[in-house]
Computed example of a mutant assay.
Amino acid sequence: MTTQGHLSRIPLIATIIVLAAVATMIGLGIWQLQRLQWKEALLARYETALASEDSVAWPTTASRNPDAYYRRSTLDCVTTDERAAMSGRNADDEAGWVQLVQCNTADGAKAWVQLGWSRSSDAVAFGGGTVTGRIAPYEDGVRLVADPPLAGLEANAAPDPRAIPNNHFAYAMQWFFFAVTALVIYGIALRKRVRR
């Protein structure tokens, strides 16, 4: 059969769809590599902030949170509301519970404070006061990890930016693998079609 005959057996619409899908997957892989560069720069900035003893104002809006992560800060806890305990580690890397309290600040805002670490999840007494520590991500906002610890608790483990997931390279390789796999599968299907 001539080359023209082989080409006439290639389904045009299916080929366009597959090639568009492959191009999309390659584009997503490239985007993940770009995200990798952004994430590495972000983590390097956070490592620098963690090494700094310079203090910043407690962030009062969500848009200021990322710029304050891992920096030292101070807030005045006027009154307290909610309390929580979650699994965490102390400064000696022992597993246990970190005690959190939601503070009301003088301007009426709310702020989560991680008071310290204990072996028990039982709530501790903390009525408020000045808290100094490092700002760390927490749920949809931030928390102040007290340093020194408060309410008779042991020292918290320092917040660590290395705990932030950085899987962009793996995701990029995954998208490239999907693209190659799609091309191979479609190539095999086309070969069988042409042979028939």
Rank of each mutant, 00 (worst) to 15 (best):
S8D: 11
R9K: 15
I10Q: 07
I10H: 06
I17C: 13
V18G: 06
M25N: 02
W31H: 10
L33Q: 05
L33P: 00
Q37V: 12
L42D: 08
L42I: 02
R45Q: 07
T48F: 02
A49D: 13
A51M: 00
V56Y: 09
W58T: 09
W58I: 06
P66M: 04
A68S: 15
S73V: 09
S73M: 06
L75W: 09
T80L: 11
D81Y: 09
D81P: 00
D81E: 12
S87L: 09
E94G: 09
Q99Y: 03
L100T: 04
Q102C: 13
T105H: 04
Q114H: 02
Q114D: 05
D122E: 15
G127D: 10
G128H: 12
G128W: 11
T132W: 08
R134W: 03
P137F: 03
P137K: 00
D140Q: 13
D140A: 11
R143W: 01
L144H: 05
V145Y: 07
A146Y: 10
P149Q: 01
A158V: 04
A163V: 10
A163E: 14
P165E: 07
P165I: 03
M173G: 07
W175Q: 03
L183W: 08
V184H: 04
Y186L: 05
I188Y: 09
K192P: 10
R195I: 12
